[in-house]
Design a protein around this nucleic acid. Structure first.
Lengths: 108, 108
DNA sequence: TTTTCTCATAACCATGTAGTTATGAATGTC
DNA sequence: GACATTCATAACTACATGGTTATGAGAAAA
């Protein structure tokens, strides 16, 4: 169970159709391919392909039941994204602190 | 000063070269195009084009000084990303809470 | 002024990608 | 068994995209 790379996540979420599918799964919970296709505005094969990419990125899980496949969001998969943005912000804050320190020193 | 859309941000950060440039700007602070090109592994025009896309996404700022251009990270631009991941996680937590409540009710 | 340096833009090319239709595999229904 | 339903895959197309080289614009240096 290795962490998905930020690269895979960013790439997977860069497409609006995929992001919309993932958002629906987050907001409304588990859904079948048919349900997701309705209202997606693209064909069922396109939806299936997108779901495959989301799955490969670790963003969704699939569960087979009879002849339909249920997809659900794997929320933990967003962790690397949160980490990454946190790292970028951390460095910014560090340099911001430096600036504050500089200003304080200049004040004296 | 309108907020950059998550779409622009995800698209801009989906490319490894661009993400590397942005990371360097976050970690090491302001840099000229020449400095960024050294060690980027791609040509100077490619770097310039990537910087243009990052700028359009609101991720970097440019500052002209003589014949060189200095780029720096605009950290606030990551806010929509943090918001988005927060929203996705919030809904997950909400459903998790529902599950917990359900289990508690089942316990009684 | 002429030359050099730094960067951005133009033009182009190869590849990746998001969509389509057609079809097949597996399951449920009659 | 015959048919219908649900999804995934294959094959294809159109376009986006990331890279290149060539060139131009503007500022500094000679």
């Amino acid at each position: 169970m290795t962490q998905p790379s930020p690269d895979l996540l960013f790439k997977a979420l860069a497409d609006p159709s995929r992001r919309a599918l993932f958002e629906r799964l987050c907001l409304d919970g588990e859904q079948t391919v048919g349900a997701l296709t309705a209202g997606a505005g693209i064909s069922q094969p396109a939806v299936s392909k997108h779901l495959g990419i989301l799955k490969q990125a670790g963003l969704v899980l699939d569960r087979h039941e009879g002849r339909q496949t249920h997809y659900s969001a794997q929320q933990r998969a967003l962790a690397p994204l949160v980490d990454w943005t946190g790292r970028m912000n951390r460095f910014w804050e560090a340099r911001f602190d430096d600036l504050e320190n500089l200003l304080k020193r200049m004040d004296q």
